[in-house]
């Protein structure tokens, strides 16, 4: 089953990617829209395809892969199926950075100000977490530091909303935090892609060490795993991948939690196989969700993060329900 899994999932992701390119308010023909992707000259169809739909599909692919992969790496490192990429505080501090940019008006100054502020927020969280958890801390100190940072960032975000003199800015912040891929440009792709690629490459390199960690920290160390280095790789990789995701898509929850959970039985529980599988699964889920928000409510601007949480949370409850049966 594992052998067939990867080609099947890659095919699914490819299919959803093309579907994402073909769904939108502008009713374009299939051949017309696909050929417009590769045409040089202007015209409305070329503009829609190259400037609106292509960045949206590419970002859906990248953000989903980053969230799924980070979730799998975080669960593998913490040896806990309830871990998710936001656990180390990256999502909430990136969101805080973006919120500050929106509130202060910097976001309006130039197009990439908001994602850059979010990336800066993610960077701050990494410094804080390494400072708080110490250079040799274990999994527990990492989790606690992450919770503290998330709580602080959440409180500061609330403070900004609380003190916001301008109701429109507050509304903009609230909507942004729901997460969306609408109206993104290729500039967003070029800004986020290097961070995501780097982060994902670092996370994929932890595969063998995460496998060894199945046996516990002591046994993993006796197998030659350098735990401090591994922790640094997981934290930095997650921060780069998830920080860049939040920077361009806002807070999209549940992908990093549900996808590794769902795929774990299909890869025989191996953390090393779960990493690439979750990247593909995350990409598929996010592309599908982003298509769904366009199909379900074309005129309502249904937010991506709202949909993933609406679908993800009950699904997660179902998984817990099943787990309860196994453990009893």
């Amino acid at each position: 089953m594992t052998r067939a899994l990867f080609p099947l999932m890659a095919a699914l992701v490819g299919l959803l990617f093309f579907a994402s390119l073909l769904v939108g308010p502008a009713a374009l023909g299939l051949g017309e829209s696909l050929s417009a992707l590769f045409r040089g000259e202007g015209g409305p169809v070329v503009l829609v395809m190259q400037e609106i739909r292509l960045p949206r599909a590419v970002l859906g692919l990248l953000v989903g892969a980053a969230l799924g992969l980070s979730g799998a790496a975080m669960q593998g490192f913490l040896r806990n199926p309830l871990a998710e990429p936001g656990l180390v505080g990256v999502s909430s501090t990136a969101a805080l950075g973006a919120v500050l940019a929106l509130q202060s008006g910097v976001a309006a100054a130039f197009a990439l100000a908001l994602p850059l502020a979010a990336l800066a927020g993610a960077g701050v969280s990494v410094l804080l977490i390494l400072l708080l958890a110490g250079p040799r801390g274990g999994a527990l100190s990492l989790i606690l530091a992450g919770i503290a940072i998330s709580a602080l960032a959440g409180a500061l975000t609330s403070l900004v909303l609380n003190l916001s003199p301008n109701p429109f800015a507050a509304m903009e912040i609230v909507y942004w935090m729901m997460g969306s891929l609408a109206d993104r440009s290729m500039e967003h792709v070029w800004l986020a892609a290097p961070f995501m690629a780097l982060g994902m490459a670092v996370l994929l390199a932890t595969a063998r060490n995460l496998d060894a960690l199945t046996l516990g920290e002591d046994a993993a160390q006796s197998l030659g795993v350098d735990l401090n280095r591994l922790r640094l790789m997981v934290v930095l990789g997650t921060a780069a991948a998830v920080g860049a995701s939040v920077a361009v898509a806002g807070a999209v929850g549940f992908v990093g939690l549900v996808i590794p959970h769902l795929l774990r039985p299909l890869v025989g529980g191996r953390p090393s196989l779960l990493l690439p599988a979750s990247a593909l699964g995350g990409a598929a889920m996010l592309l599908a969700a982003d298509i769904a928000v366009r199909v379900i409510a074309p005129d309502q601007d249904l937010k991506l993060g709202v949909l993933t949480a609406l679908v993800g949370a009950p699904f997660f409850l179902h998984l817990i329900w099943r787990l309860r049966g196994v453990e009893a």
Binding site: R79, L213, T214, L215, G216, A219, R264, P265, G268, G269, R270, P271
Partner: peptide, 9 residues
């Protein structure tokens, strides 16, 4: 401790 984190074969 008999530490096995994931349901591997």
């Amino acid at each position: 401790g008999h530490d096995i984190a994931w349901p591997v074969s």
